[in-house]
């Protein structure tokens, strides 16, 4: 059988209409990447995580390469809500949904961020980061506690009608517990995984490689863990999943979708190949045509046991 029409790439992530399932992971991508390809091809765009007030971030060194991955301890350096809002017109021009990643030290501040962002009328979804391993206040101390997660999501829920995506940390014993807590509190979707807590030591100086001592591991090295967690969550909750962790090519995107992701974000690999998202989006169509699949949604969660 030959496909007559172009395969369907559109997906709907909890009400966020994406022209294809490919987006970017917060903190790994910026408008600057528009120098390498036309960012309007993205299914959605997720800017670097923001906080209410500007944040200086952690001392340096903040990053270190590891085997097929890297550790980062940026500490959420960002220009704050107002600073971010100034950049919104540039994001709007891209004609693709804008999902804003937010962090805070209290449920109230998460809600304030959500409310103010919603009022701009310019964004399409809110990703609640309760999973950053590099900040003392907030971060994954929230996301590793189902009660805290529930409380934050509930508070944000009251502050916005926009789709809420709760971003989960992999640094927990049972991620499905947190996923369920987010779902029951009214989250419209979940995204996973944030980075895995790790460290690295310089044997010459006998010092840690990161000033923050620990950092978050990302990149191809974490993909099998991310994939396993997406599959576990797919079986535990009904809300859609934005999958991420080590995605580097078309095959990785398909794997995440088969495991249950409705959309997939590329993170660290943007550093390796700043055009990778465009290449993946082009490659997805080819994959679907070759495999005679007329709608990419038919892949979601369709993995089978051997």
């Amino acid at each position: 059988m030959k496909l007559e029409t172009k395969p369907k790439l559109e997906v709907n992530l909890a009400g966020i209409k994406m022209k294809n399932p490919v987006t970017v992971a917060s903190g790994t991508f910026g408008l600057q990447h528009g120098q390498f390809f036309d960012l309007s091809v993205l299914g959605a765009i997720v800017p670097k995580g923001i906080t209410l007030e500007p944040k200086e971030g952690n001392p340096t060194p903040r990053i270190i390469e590891t085997a097929s991955g890297m550790l980062n301890a940026i500490g959420l350096q960002n220009p704050g809500l107002e600073g971010f809002i100034d950049t919104l017109p540039a994001y709007e021009k891209l004609n693709t949904p804008i999902i804003v990643n937010i962090s805070a030290g209290s449920a109230e501040d998460y809600a304030k961020l959500a409310e103010k962002l919603t009022k701009t009328g310019k964004i399409h979804g809110i990703e609640i980061n309760v999973s950053c391993p590099n900040v003392k206040k907030g971060g994954f101390q929230f996301g590793s506690d189902p009660k805290e997660t529930e409380n934050i999501v509930k508070t944000v829920r009251k502050a916005t009608n926009l789709p809420i995506i709760t971003k989960l940390t992999p640094n927990v014993t049972d991620i499905t517990e947190i996923a369920k807590a987010a779902e029951s509190a009214g989250s419209d979707a979940i995204s996973l995984i944030n980075t895995l807590l790790g460290t690295s030591i310089n044997t010459k100086t006998k010092k840690f490689n990161l000033a923050n001592v620990t950092g978050g591991l990302s990149g191809p090295a974490v993909k099998p863990i991310a994939l396993r967690m997406v599959w576990q969550c797919y079986n535990a909750v009904k809300i859609p999943i934005l999958g991420m962790g080590g995605v580097a090519n078309v095959t990785d995107v398909i794997e995440f979708m088969l495991a249950g992701a409705t959309a997939v974000a590329v993170g660290t690999y943007n550093f390796v190949n700043p055009k990778v998202c465009e290449e993946i989006i082009l490659g997805l169509s080819d994959y679907l045509i070759e495999n005679k699949i007329d709608d990419i949604n038919n892949l979601i969660g369709k993995v089978e046991k051997v």
Partner: peptide, 20 residues
């Protein structure tokens, strides 16, 4: 040490009078 090389990740910062 750098990751993105384009000013997006804040991995390569140095301390200046104006901040990182």
């Amino acid at each position: 040490r750098m990751a993105c090389g384009v000013g997006a990740c804040y991995g390569c910062v140095c301390k200046t009078k104006k901040g990182y």
